[in-house]
Design a binder for these strands. Sequence first.
RNA 1: GCCCGGGUGGCGAAAUCUGGUAGCCGCAUGGGACUUAAAAUCCCAUGGGGGAAACCCCGUGCCGGUUCGAGUCCGGCCCCGGGCACCA
Length: 873
Amino acid sequence: MRESYDPAAVERAAQQYWDERRAFEVGEDPARPKFYCLSMLPYPSGRLHMGHVRNYTIGDVLARYLRMQGYNVLQPMGWDAFGLPAENAAISNGVPPAKWTRENIAHMRAQLKSLGFAIDWRREIASCDPGYYHWNQWLFLRMREKGLAYRKSGVVNWDPVDQTVLANEQVIDGRGWRTGAPVEKREIPMYYLAITRYAEELLEALATLDGWPERVRVMQANWIGRSEGCDIAFPYAADTVAAAGSDGALRVFTTRADTLFGATFMAIAAEHPVALAAARHDARLAAFVEECRQGSVVEADVATQEKKGMPTGLHVLHPFTRKPLEIWVANYVVMAYGEGAVMGVPAHDERDFDFALKARLPVVTVIRPVSGAYEEVRAPWMPAYADYGVTVNSAEFSGLTFQAAVDAIAAALEKNGLGRKRVQYRLRDWGISRQRYWGCPIPIIHCGACGEVPVPDEQLPVVLPEDLVPDGSGNPLARSPAFYECRCPKCGGAARRETDTMDTFVDSSWYFMRYACADAANSMVDRRVDYWLPVDQYIGGIEHAILHLLYSRFWSRVMRDFGMVKFGEPFTRLLTQGMVLNDIYSYVPDDGRKRYVNPADVDTRRGADGVEVHEAVTPELGTVPVTHEGLGKMSKSSGNGVDPQHLVERFGADTARLFTMFASPPEQTLEWSDEGVQGAARFIRRLWNAVYEHVAAGPTLALDRAALSAAQRELRRAAHQALAKATDDIGRRRNFNTAIAAIMELLNSIGRFGDPSPQGRAVRHEALGIAVLVLAPITPHVCHALWLALGHPTAPVDEPWPTPDSAALAQETHEIVVQVNGRLRGHISVPVQADEAAVRAAALADERVRRFIGDKPVRRVIVVPGKLVNVVV
RNA sequence: GCCCGGGUGGCGAAAUCUGGUAGCCGCAUGGGACUUAAAAUCCCAUGGGGGAAACCCCGUGCCGGUUCGAGUCCGGCCCCGGGCACCA
């Protein structure tokens, strides 16, 4: 063993040891319990960032820990290789996305390997490989056969200058990112997957996911958004029937049928057929509908815009009172939800209230609080009353509580054929068409004679040409006759291949199954999936809490219903790790455009007035003061990233891993700190030095548990306490920071323990061994070296996880806290087996406690066994 | 706008399930030891206020409540972050 710690040499040796033994290549072994430990696959952006390091270190710690616990652990890795950044790189550098992507993968793979993750690299997949996306296409066609995949029109962001569909990310302040042109909404045909057919099951099964964070389950439940309500048909007035089209009534969905008598107007979306019909004869209305087409399709934009509307001059009749209600076109009504039309009840709905206030529409109060007087809602002095209550002013339905009113009104509507109860979901079907090049081609052929024709299975995969270079306007596939010109599989005539590609969420909805059988050439999955799946522990960013996880749950169910897999829930346990943050510094040169400076290049000192001054050397201006903008997610755009590679080169992978695990618990954000990294490096050196000094003093005798001094028993207890805590922290709580803190405390105790006697050395040997094995999943390289240096013949990866010795943990007395009136006043030491009366007596006898009690009468004494006594006076 | 989180010393954080000693561990800072010196290492101190000291008071974003006891539970607010369906 070397006297000083050399991370590069230690890490090289450990990685070589694992590689030579193929330590992390695993196969199906029915004799052992399996554990599938999966981290979300990275997008190959070019370089690893600290978020990756954090994500994969968490996964690796768990994988290595569970391996030591005796599980057959699978930990694979792959690449989410399709997507927009490759096209952006192509636009700025002229490099084909395929080349850019594959070079990035090679670079990032080497970076991952340098971090020492226990990955079975034989199973690596990339979603841009035809052998992978073949099966996206194949399953899409199976879904299409069942009606689970279908074509309908959908709304997209349209850049009128570039004549291109824009991703939401490419819309900046309502304008196209490259052209600056105001974005419009445009309807185009797209393919959809019928995730809403699984809405009920996806919602109900959330209750079974007890290994998921509660907040993720709540977010998913709200996203699915089950509402019980009523369809209500408002018949058109006589003068409206012709103008509105053939259908005799305007349909709405409402969760508040109890407020039906408070409806004073109808509001419809600008894209509603009735709005379009009315706009044909009304120039002002047409202009308003056109105005609503401006702007992006992003929900947050729609929801925060000012509420606007315009009357159509058309009317419906109230289903009970037959009073006419005017139809308005309103920008706050969304076509995608319900019927694209709502009944306007200003007295009992805040959005309707705001709208009615602006449009000067009447307000009719029909609900009063259950307990409390009737109060008329009168805009604007008295706000809308949106809570449940008792109906008033509602003819024969007055005086009913919410549920009774809804039941009675729904029954009456159903009798008249004007409505009935229905469950509505907020969840919409999944639109998967993208008018983009770098994605999986949708396997459809459009034939003038036969229409929409699926590509026959034997012609799959439809291979994406890899030599095209997008230029930012339109989809290069649509300009590539070599790709789109084809023969109709049905009639053999000239036909055009679909040029839309699939949403990249399709790729990531099932990759975790493919890892189990990455080499299966003739099928999407095979029976090995039954052994490995479902994933036992999934780890990834909280930003994926809804879409990716919901799509994967849906996709798994589809495959289950096709008989391909045996599970519906793909991820048994979920850990959502927080983001990695760093300081953001900027300055503004003469051109007025803000530049960012990496925090590593910022020099901070305290000025004469005690205020911190930040400076950096800039290319334009030399040394200038820079502004500290606070903390933000590490990103290219804020220039505050820390390159893991530099960290590994300077301190070693173990330091990088230790710091990311120690700085905060995995679910919280992690704030970068160069000093914290130094601290992690220092701790590893201290551990190294402690083991070195121990080993250098010669061999150790066997531990004789019966012959230990009090101080020796004390260190043993500290060691086994640390082991028990760290085991619980890693295995159950998944709080790695506190597990590390426990081992740091143990190392402090070992440092203070100077006993050079044979039994003292034996106790120290055991304690160092515990520290090294517990840290082995976190800092595997250095622990590999130290464990072998301690004289153990087996490497930590093949060691079982140690068990705490209950005899070492036993104590004769313990400390109890004594409070007077809930305030800490003293500590007493009592025998562990002392009963409540004895503890109480000891507490009341304590001198300091007596002082605080004084001559006041003791009213009550609360004894919490093993913890505290509270004397109430 | 809607849904979901978070807010504790100079800083990252701890206080777990089930309310029971607020601040483990680390960083930073100050002092000391070692050294020709520096670095490294080791030791001590470090929430705020008062006091010579013993010790006392205050303190977990803000306001209020429940309780013998609240960082933890309840109600209301403020601020910060994530998601909102074409970023991944």
